[in-house]
Write a protein that binds this DNA or RNA. Structure first.
Length: 748
DNA sequence: GGTTTTCACGTTACG
DNA sequence: CGTGAAAACC
């Protein structure tokens, strides 16, 4: 026993140890980046099991993503072996689904509820707006949805919105919200906010259910607490209501999801709700070099709304941070790729050690293209997510319809996919007619079927429409009969054939037809884990499809590739080498945040999250010119660059590259001194003779042989235009970045 | 009803 | 610039 105790606690610093050993009562861990908070959580769980004797089944750990949950489970597996299987580790949503399936009926949630994703939500919002007669031109459905989602995540129903209404807009939102909930209930649908809100209602309205779960969980832990919303915090409080062993771990400086209703005030609420809570600060950073940590601290400490946490590290100073300016986003991407190649060649880094991260997905395009040009393997994380692709959604909608034919959202999605003569008019009429009968569309369709005798006089369809609708009903029923006959994989094939989906896709002449079929093949491949007749495996499959949506996230394999990822998705990860691109006003911070101080602080936190991912090397790049939404724009350097002390940076022409010619009043005296020294250095650099002249023959590591067209001085650097012999053509390169070799004497 | 053309729009994304 | 949805056309 003593030996196990040592193994578990010995590698921990005093603060970490304090957190692990505090096993009685509420606990708030405020943890900086790289402070080993995941380790603290897993070790605390292991400690509870092995030293306190808590049954693994009575501990729950809630994380932000499925990926984090998976990682936690595998760490616990290593610490606890087989006992780890009994631990509950997952996301709030996953936990809620389990609870609602089992006990939701106590408050009227049907056990066969369907989870609605945002596309489903939008279509329901649009229909709600039609019903309550609100013009979608004046009130964009997306904005309405986000208002409704915000209300729900604060546990406000339509009445709550009405009570707090401050104007016409709230009034409109309230009306649509109420109608939207009616439509959801009619289709047995729960959106992602409902999963949380209904679980809260269940806990608060069904005492026996509440007691059951409160008894079950002796310990509850919540990771990434700064990104939870009010509903999630309420669930955590309810679940831990009996034993009050709620431990939350978070870093306010890494809160980057306020726009998605994450509520940083939860941390304050926690201290108010649990006045005696133990508070532990984890402020030693084990991840980054001293230089990187100092630079990140300099950036984040400019925020006003902040709890100061004195971070420190015993790591080496490490290399200076590189800040560089490219001319265009294409050159920026090339600088990254060339530097990655150099790091791999000269410094022993592998591609997997490197990551390129950016504020908006659109920035990945230039990077992808550069990787393709240089033949560098890469992996793009995110973008259009797998389950959001049209063809995948279509097929899922068919499968959902087979599982639950009363699912009107899925039915309207596929009733005319591929086109079978049931246009918008017919579908609208069907929905309206079914609605007037108080029936789901599927029930209404059955009334049209010939064997039901004559149709009801109220049916608004002519013979041709009726034939089409009855034909669709027959298709669905025919497919439903297959459920007992075939397994899930075969079911997908049958659906693709019988609905004519595959044929229509192939005939469409769509340039993406092959890609789309590939995606469908991939979906088909994912059914392999589900055995047995489709009738039994369909529901679990759809469940995982709705809940596990990080299929194309980072996977554990040994393949070598460069990772491209957004700053939001990189949260929680770490890499030896980090490239951050687009350090420009308008990109980072993003234009949409420029006029709001609170949003600007979130942008700064986004930058902070990115910088603190780096272990050894950090590159911050910006581009002088960038195409944004089609139009080329010249953006000044990001204000965040100004916060980084010059002495941490190794970059030619710091003043121009970092400050963009501005003389920031807020540079400290120290910075000004450093700036002066740098400026002197730059002047000296400018005096250096040009490295090349027009006509020089050179070779480039990737582009091969070329001839120098021109070599012009840039402050602190030279820009060399080269005409390459190969496919590369004419390129503009920076002397400090592109390693050009003289290949021979200039031609006469 | 289906197809083509025009138009508007554009952040980040957890399930 | 690229995409997806609405409008116009067949």
């Amino acid at each position: 026993m003593a030996e196990a105790r040592d193994a578990l606690l010995d590698g921990l610093n005093p603060a970490q140890r304090e957190a692990v050993e505090h096993v009685d009562g509420p606990l708030l861990i405020v943890a900086g980046p790289g402070s080993g908070k995941t380790r603290v959580i897993t070790h605390r769980i292991a400690y509870l099991v092995t030293h306190v004797g808590i049954g693994p089944g009575r501990i729950a750990a809630v994380t932000f993503t499925n990926r984090a949950a998976r990682e936690m489970r595998s760490r616990l597996q290593r610490l606890l072996g087989d006992r780890a299987r009994h631990l509950v580790a997952g996301t709030f949503h996953g936990l809620c689904v389990i609870i609602l399936r089992r006990d939701g009926e106590a408050i009227g949630v049907p056990p066969d509820f369907v989870i609605m994703d945002d596309e489903d939500q939008i279509s329901l919002i649009k229909r709600s707006m039609e019903i309550v007669e609100i013009d979608p031109k004046r009130f964009p459905p997306r904005a309405i949805l986000s208002a409704i989602s915000s209300a729900k995540s604060q546990l406000l129903g339509p009445e709550g919105v009405e009570a707090r209404a401050t104007g016409y807009y709230d009034e409109v939102v309230q009306r649509i919200y109420a109608q939207y909930q009616v439509l959801l209930a009619r289709t047995h649908g729960l959106d992602f906010d409902d999963l949380l809100a209904k679980t809260v209602s269940l806990m608060q309205q069904a005492p026996t259910v509440r007691e059951k779960y409160q008894e079950r969980f002796i310990h509850l832990m919540v990771d990434e607490f700064q990104d939870t919303n009010v509903a999630q915090y309420t669930i955590a409080r309810e679940l831990s209501g009996k034993y009050r062993n709620l431990a939350v771990v978070g870093d306010p400086d890494q809160s980057i999801y306020a726009w998605r209703n994450a509520d940083i005030r939860n941390i304050l609420s926690f201290q108010r709700d649990y006045p005696g809570a133990k508070v532990v600060n984890l402020s030693e950073n084990y991840r980054s070099t001293e230089t990187i940590l100092a630079a990140a601290q300099a950036v984040i400490s400019t925020n006003r709304q902040r709890l100061e946490l004195d971070l420190f590290t015993h790591n080496d100073r490490g290399k200076p941070i590189v800040i560089a300016e490219a001319f265009t986003e294409d050159e920026e991407a090339e600088m990254v790729v060339e530097e990655v190649q150099r790091l791999a060649r000269e410094d022993g880094y592998s591609l997997r050690d490197c990551v390129v991260t950016y504020r908006v997905n659109a920035q990945s395009r230039a990077l992808e293209e550069a990787c393709l040009r240089y033949g560098m393997p890469y992996k793009l994380i995110g973008g259009v997510r797998f389950y959001q692709r049209r063809e995948v959604k279509d097929l899922i909608a068919y499968m959902r319809l087979l599982q639950d034919p009363y699912d009107d959202v899925s039915l309207t999605r596929v009733i005319n996919v591929p086109a079978r003569g049931l246009g918008k008019r017919t579908v609208d009429d069907l929905i309206a007619w079914a609605g007037s009968l108080g029936l789901p569309a599927y029930s209404a369709l059955q009334l049209l079927a010939p064997e039901q005798g004559q149709e009801p006089s109220s049916s608004p369809f002519d013979a041709r429409q009726r034939r089409g609708l009855v034909g669709f009903l027959g298709l669905v029923n025919g497919l439903r009969e297959q459920l007992a006959e075939v397994d899930l994989t075969a079911l997908i094939d049958v659906v693709m054939e019988r609905t004519g989906y595959r044929a229509a896709l192939l005939e469409s002449g769509d340039v993406d037809a092959e890609d789309r079929l590939d995606n469908l093949r991939e979906l088909r491949g994912m059914t392999a884990d589900f055995d047995g007749p489709a009738a039994e495996s369909l529901a679990p499959f759809l469940e995982s499809a709705a809940l596990v949506s990080d299929q194309d996230a980072l996977t554990e394999d040994d393949q070598q590739y460069l990772t491209l990822i957004t700053l939001h998705q990189i949260k929680g990860l770490e890499f030896p080498v980090v490239f951050m691109t687009g350090f420009e006003e308008g990109v980072l911070p993003h234009v949409r945040s420029l006029d709001d101080p609170e949003q600007l602080e979130e942008e700064r936190r986004i930058a902070y999250v990115g910088m603190t991912r780096a272990e050894q090397r950090l590159y911050l790049l910006r581009s002088f010119r960038r195409r944004l939404a089609g139009a080329p724009q010249a953006n000044p350097p990001s204000r965040f660059l100004l916060d980084i002390p010059y002495e941490l940076v190794d970059t030619p022409a710091r003043e121009r590259v970092i400050a963009g010619g501005r003389s920031p009043a807020r540079l400290s005296a120290l910075d000004r001194e450093a700036a002066a020294a740098v400026a002197a250095g730059d002047r000296a650099a400018d005096l250096e003779p040009p490295p090349f002249k027009a006509g020089d023959k050179i070779t480039h590591a990737s582009f091969g042989k070329g001839i120098v067209v021109s070599c012009t001085a840039k402050p602190g650097d030279y820009e060399i235009t080269v005409a390459f012999a190969g496919d590369a053509g004419v390129k503009r390169l920076l002397h400090s970045f592109a390693k050009l070799e003289m290949a021979g004497q200039p031609t006469a």
